[in-house]
Simulated assay, not measured.
Amino acid sequence: MKKRLLILPLLVITVLLAGCIGDGTKNMEQQTELKGVLKLDGSTTVYPIAKTAAEEFMKLHPAVTIDVQQSSTGEGLVKFLAGETDISDATRAPKDNEYAEAQRKGMKLHMTVISNDAVGIIVHTSNPVSDLTTAQLKAIYFDGTITDWSQLTNGTKKGKINIYNTDPKISGTAELFNTKIAGSADKPYVAGTTIIHPTPKMIPTIKDDPDGLAYTPVNWINNEVKMVKVNGVAPTQKTILDTSYLLSRKMYMITDGAPKGLNREFISYILSGDGQSIVQKEGFIPVT
């Protein structure tokens, strides 16, 4: 009887200890489970990556809420510097005045590259033009010395060139185009251009305008329009990565200092294999 009495308490203690260890492990898992809210805004080009990645990330971490909005790189940075967002999506580096504003507010702007991208030049599908040089684009958009398609086609196509652009004050796409073609982001366009925003709207605009010319991120371009080469080079994965295509660029997520906490976890997910698969599915070139 004594042996049975001695063994029983030992068994009870062992079971209780096992129960405590099990509960402790469960509590630790609960404590390490990600939770919180992230707010993102900025580039319309980065938006599809951020939106899809957020949806997948929230499936993995149900206690996390990620609100992804889109405006433009410039407008997104205004909101970020005002403390309205946690991450600013961008297709360009911050400007000097944006860095200065961040410094005044005690912020340190940190850029993380999340993908590679490029800006394409598009015309109507019926347009015979298949290649434009930097000099020709500058003459059309900034100098006003080329105004008719006949000047580019030896007369096989005639008609005034209808020029479409976005605002370089807020658009990273426009800033890249202006800088690469005219040598300055602030170079004014010729009179009579039409501002289209956001840039995805360039596609239906050019589709319906046989005399139109525009620029837009490559990932938006489809068979409804015709993309032309620039200086004889088409935007391909190779030419974008080695930057032999003139209008190549990178895409960023901007944070206050190096990403930490939930910012770090989300950006790390985008840079992971699964995240870079999303980048590729959305029509961009992965960084890894």
Score class of each variant (00 low, 15 high):
Ser72Tyr: 08
Asp96Leu: 15
Ser171Met: 04
Gln237Ile: 06
Asp41Asn: 15
Ala118Val: 11
Leu34Gln: 03
Gln31Ile: 08
Val123Pro: 12
Ala182Val: 09
Met202Pro: 07
Ala100Cys: 00
Ala54Trp: 14
Leu271Phe: 08
Lys250Glu: 14
Leu262His: 08
His197Tyr: 14
Val279Met: 01
Leu241Pro: 01
Ala214Leu: 13
Val129Asp: 09
Asp89Trp: 05
Cys20Met: 11
Ala63Gln: 14
Pro62Ala: 13
Gln31Lys: 13
Ile163Glu: 06
Lys169Tyr: 07
Lys2Gly: 15
Lys26Ser: 09
Tyr141Ser: 10
Ala258Thr: 05
Leu81Ile: 04
Ala174Met: 02
Thr243Met: 08
Ile240Arg: 06
Ser150Val: 02
Thr236Cys: 01
Thr73Cys: 00
Thr193Tyr: 07
Pro48Asn: 03
Gly42Lys: 10
Asn231Val: 06
Lys157Phe: 14
Val68Cys: 10
Leu246His: 00
Thr193Ser: 11
Asp41Thr: 12
Met251Gly: 14
Thr145Gln: 04
Leu17Val: 13
Pro259Glu: 04
Leu109Val: 02
Thr125Leu: 07
Ser184Ala: 15
Leu8Trp: 11
Phe142Val: 09
Asp86Ile: 11
Leu81Asn: 04
Lys260Trp: 00
Met28Asp: 12
Thr145Val: 08
Asn231Ala: 05
Val230Cys: 02
Ile114Cys: 03
Ser71Gly: 07
Lys3Leu: 14
Lys158Asn: 14
Asp23Leu: 15
Gly22Val: 14
Ala82Trp: 04
Pro48Gln: 03
Asp148Met: 05
Phe177Gly: 04
Ala18His: 00
Ala102Ser: 00
Ala54Val: 13
Thr236Lys: 01
Met107Pro: 01
Leu109Asp: 01
Met253His: 02
Asn27Glu: 12
Tyr215Ser: 07
Phe266Met: 02
Thr216Cys: 11
Leu81Tyr: 03
Glu101Leu: 10
Pro217Cys: 01
Ile221Glu: 06
Ala18Val: 13
Thr52Cys: 04
Ala53Tyr: 10
Lys250Ser: 14
Thr199Gln: 11
Arg104Asn: 13
Asn165Thr: 15
Met58Pro: 10
Ala135Met: 00
Pro259Leu: 05
Ala182Gln: 09
Gly283Arg: 02
Val37Pro: 03
Ile87Ser: 01
His61Val: 13
Thr156Ser: 13
Ala135Val: 03
Lys39Pro: 07
Thr153Asn: 08
Ser43Thr: 11
Leu132Asn: 08
Glu56Lys: 14
Leu11Gln: 00
Tyr269Ala: 09
